[in-house]
């Protein structure tokens, strides 16, 4: 019994975080697509609704890819790139705002920075973990038939056992045999 479990724990945690980030991405994306006006008003970015919607679609696409992919590392790196874009967009809008909007923008910048840190950690852990897992030998079960002879020769070997009446297909659904 090889003991590879220790190698898996860090990678497993990173995969768990990646799943969380995937769902977060989709939720944020849905909010941006569904209610861009609320966001632009709070951040003092009136007129930028189309941009927010586009960013929302990006979030949904990235989140879906993270959840669907066997190796989510490149997609989490994609999230890091998206974070940089978000920070740049928010930073550009920081000037010429009223105090309330500046406070909101500051909070948004802090939140995106926090998520960026999580994205970077997760992407690095996944990239390292993928390397470790690739070095693990793949288990080979091609000889695990459980039969004493090849499956083709075992076909029907238990047909002599009686099938209880209540387990049989209803009479009306039995193959029709004329005569």
């Amino acid at each position: 019994m090889q003991n590879a479990y220790g190698n898996h724990s860090g990678s497993s945690r990173a995969h768990g975080v990646a799943r969380g980030l995937g769902w977060f991405s989709i939720a944020l994306g849905v909010a941006e697509v569904a209610a861009p006006r609320a966001l632009t008003r709070a951040l003092g970015m009136d007129g930028q609704e189309s941009l927010v919607r586009a960013y929302g679609l990006r979030e949904i696409a990235t989140g879906s890819a993270i959840l669907r992919s066997e190796n989510p590392a490149p997609w989490v790196w994609g999230r890091v790139a998206g974070d940089a874009l978000d920070l740049a967009t928010l930073g550009a809008g920081y000037r010429n705002q009223n105090p309330q909007q500046q406070r909101n923008l500051g909070l948004a910048l802090a939140a995106v920075a926090g998520v960026t840190a999580a994205d970077v950690w997760c992407a690095r852990a996944l990239s390292n973990g993928a390397g470790q897992q690739a070095r693990l030998p793949m288990r080979d079960y091609r000889d695990r038939s459980g039969f004493p002879r090849p499956p083709a020769e075992m076909r029907g070997a238990a047909r002599h056992l009686s099938i209880p009446r209540d387990m049989r297909a209803p009479e009306a659904l039995q193959p029709y045999r004329a005569g």
Partner: peptide, 29 residues
């Protein structure tokens, strides 16, 4: 898979995504 073979099904198909599990199912027919 093994039961379907033993009970004489003509064709048995198994659906999964993990190669090692599919290899074991294939070994069983």
């Amino acid at each position: 898979v093994r039961s379907a073979i033993l009970l004489g099904a003509q064709q048995v198909i198994c659906i999964d995504r993990l190669p090692e599990r599919l290899a074991m199912a294939e070994a069983g027919g």
